[in-house]
Design a protein around this nucleic acid. Sequence first.
DNA 1: AGGCTTCCTCTAAGTCGTGAATCATGTGGC
DNA 2: GCCACATGATTCACGACTTAGAGGAAGCCT
Lengths: 418, 418
Amino acid sequence: MPGTRTTTVRDLRKSNRARALWELYMNGPLTRQEVGAAAGVSPATVSNLVGELLEQGVVIEVGLEDSNGGRPRGLLQVNPEYGFVVGVDVGETALLVELFDLSMKVRASHVSTTELARLDPQDVVDRVHEGIEAVIAQAGVRSEQILGVGVGVPGLVEHGNDAVVHGQSVGWDAVPLGAMLRDGMDLPLLIDNGAKTLGQAEKWFGAARGSDNAVIVLLGIGVGTSIISNGELYRGSTSSAGEWGHTTVMVEGRQCRCGAVGCLEAYVGAEAIVARYDELKRRRVEIKPRELEERVAAIVTAAPSDKAAAKVLDETATYLGAGIADLVNLFNPERVVVGGWLGQLLGDTLLPRVREVAARHALRLPFSHVSILKAQLGKDAVALGAATLPIASVLSSGAVLPSTTVRSRLLDSSRATG
Amino acid sequence: MPGTRTTTVRDLRKSNRARALWELYMNGPLTRQEVGAAAGVSPATVSNLVGELLEQGVVIEVGLEDSNGGRPRGLLQVNPEYGFVVGVDVGETALLVELFDLSMKVRASHVSTTELARLDPQDVVDRVHEGIEAVIAQAGVRSEQILGVGVGVPGLVEHGNDAVVHGQSVGWDAVPLGAMLRDGMDLPLLIDNGAKTLGQAEKWFGAARGSDNAVIVLLGIGVGTSIISNGELYRGSTSSAGEWGHTTVMVEGRQCRCGAVGCLEAYVGAEAIVARYDELKRRRVEIKPRELEERVAAIVTAAPSDKAAAKVLDETATYLGAGIADLVNLFNPERVVVGGWLGQLLGDTLLPRVREVAARHALRLPFSHVSILKAQLGKDAVALGAATLPIASVLSSGAVLPSTTVRSRLLDSSRATG
DNA sequence: AGGCTTCCTCTAAGTCGTGAATCATGTGGC
DNA sequence: GCCACATGATTCACGACTTAGAGGAAGCCT
């Protein structure tokens, strides 16, 4: 929950309400007492706040908890049906749109693939709009029930006036995706980098859950991270923090597709792994994006007799270990979570070796406090994480209904005139 | 200013008071209107708050600002004489204790050097106590006027119950420095890593001033950083974030004193620079810590005919550039500030080359938003930064006088009993 | 002096969270 | 079946806070 600025007495209520809601969402169901302890308010205030939230349908009471002798504690929870959110994963080869309820149950989903090598922004926008309409229809909800739409994109997202996307790998240069998506749709819209939305998904529901300082590593064709610092996504000054793939692990090393040399991605990116294998086999095979996954899988599962595969994997573990050690030294996280399709593929085989290498390269103290884990969520994590964006926004606002505001304003004026 | 949790109406005032104070301290002198705008409160509240601060002597009115036609605006400022702070720099070879007023004017200072190769904790503690008494006497202030003592140490500082220091380079393993210093001194005490205090000094008063996302690099025998994220020091889970010196820039590269290989420090640390020079000259010279600085200086200022020096410097720029590019990619700062005695020494000669290398290695978007600068503060920056620690603490508390609390409590009880 | 402009402060009103008292809702004993 | 008991939840009076708007303060110009 971002540091909401609290200056007036009214802000106070909003902020307390938001804290209670976050707590209920993240750790619910909870008793009123637990909410009070977490939000730092008295029982009286909890009662007051919860009463309001119950009345507005944001929160529901789900069962009772036995107490030894006295009145049982009521268990509270955010109402999964209070509203719905849409998460969109704009991938390099496919576009996934999913509709969730607030408990993150998938209520509808829609996939569309593209044959284009480069993504055309307008085409993407049209498909997103189409997908959103499709999932709303499919789930049978009214569009007023949609709290917002989150979009995860491949590339850096500048959050200025409206989101602008720079996606080197898909040929996007300063695409004003925010404005384009908003045109023809009036749902609240939030856009972020796909690696960051995946990170948020792992933080909320996956392997980084409960950790306030974590680094989620995304391995695929590209190599990125999502950094959680003090419980929040770390963005840096222009939201491009966490570009781990192009950190230098070998001065004057291999050529990277970014133009520089010695980048981590030039060693552990999916294309690099396959290319290094082919080099060892002294053959030149053109790498087609569609086949990348099975080619990497073939290397991972190769027979022990395949010396080239063994060497490539060994080197990959070395570079990955060194790279992760850098993250541990610089960010001092409690957990490093390795995800992305390539991460899932390499995980079981390589993780023990990666841990060993990282232990050698990282400083003792920070390393002794870190766990290096496999991601828990699967392929849809980017869309799931994208859907958390509008949820975070709703929770931080305290889920104040526009209608409530209008109502109280009407009451005010009627009293003023009456 | 850390995210103070505001739940009750009283917290509200405290938080508004703290915001106003921070603003006045950082950007003063300011008019009441400016304070109101910055703190987000109405003129009435500013008047109220400022009145209290003036009465308590925390803030003073310094002159008037002309207005076009009306009553002139009063200019407010934190009272430099409201209290004093002590900053201590526990260096590897010398110990510096300085006493500052709130405007950071040095009022007294005390140096003591040591001949020991390894620092003895109890010896350091004694010297610190001695130094503090000396500067208090020298400045002629009463110890009640000391708001607190900040200490910058070489090594990682774990902020648990009380500060515990792990200083590999000085042979400290889990030294409970907090408890040791507190014993025999009852001033408020704050301890942090020297690189971090230096970073805070540059952020408050130096080259990183006004930047909410900055990385301050400290070059010396060791190589560290201090990371400012969203205006605050980034610590990570165990306060050891920013250990840049032992990130890997060359897999399977040079041996580093930390035990690993290929660390940045093994290339650009002071000892490494001299060692590499000696290797090129094909000679083995024992490096004495005392002579390190002049030996590096000799390399930097060597005649162009000294090919070995040129090569060492060139390589240093390459590694430093790559390392800084990593920081830019990972943290996406607005500024990178290069400091430390080695940084100062290398700065003018090397910085242009470092920028070039960094530009090649960093991604375009984050690099286009970053400035790579030399530090502005000199050798005493660690002590200066250490002294900012208690100031930050006072500002965040809103400078609520203990006496005030007692007084109001007395009033309460007298009214209750009366 | 008097009007004017601008800054500052005082007052009344509205909102909030808290603590103490009260109400609600269960268990266990008889 | 009834009543004491324990504990959770709610209500109410109170103090504390910020704000809007009115009024005072302090300088300038005519």
